[in-house]
Design a protein around this nucleic acid. Structure first.
Length: 104
DNA sequence: AGATTGACCAGAT
DNA sequence: TATCTGGCCAATC
């Protein structure tokens, strides 16, 4: 899996994340067929165009992106709730397209 | 070609 | 809760 290819797949997925939902880097890595490349997903996001809802991408367990204080505000604006510890409630908001998008 | 880096992850301390 | 560790693997020096 080359970086450019992975990056494009990730962008397409992130673009389809509905408001009020989030995904993890590891999850995205699995979805694009590169389960061991969660880090490349992160790298891809670092170069992601501002047209993407990249604030809906979080770390495992709902951890927010390091060095991005506003992310929580952005998510809260979409009704994403947080635990007192400052982590997104994945149990409530994690995006599961293989379950929620059965149409085809 | 070899060493370092990283918007990761799970587990341990 | 905060930090550290080792593992991971392609990208980047």
């Amino acid at each position: 899996m080359t970086y450019p290819a992975l990056r494009e797949k990730v962008y397409l997925l992130v673009r389809d994340i509905p408001a009020g939902h989030v995904v993890t880097y590891g999850q995205l890595a699995m979805m694009v067929g590169a389960p061991a490349h969660a880090r490349l997903v992160g790298r891809a996001m670092s170069e992601a165009p501002s047209t993407l809802p990249c604030h809906r991408v979080v770390g495992s367990g709902g951890r927010l992106v390091p060095g991005w204080a506003n992310q929580q505000r952005l998510l809260e604006a979409e009704n994403v709730s947080f635990t007192p510890g400052g982590k997104a409630r994945l149990a409530l908001h994690q995006w599961r397209p293989w379950q929620s998008a059965p149409s085809s």
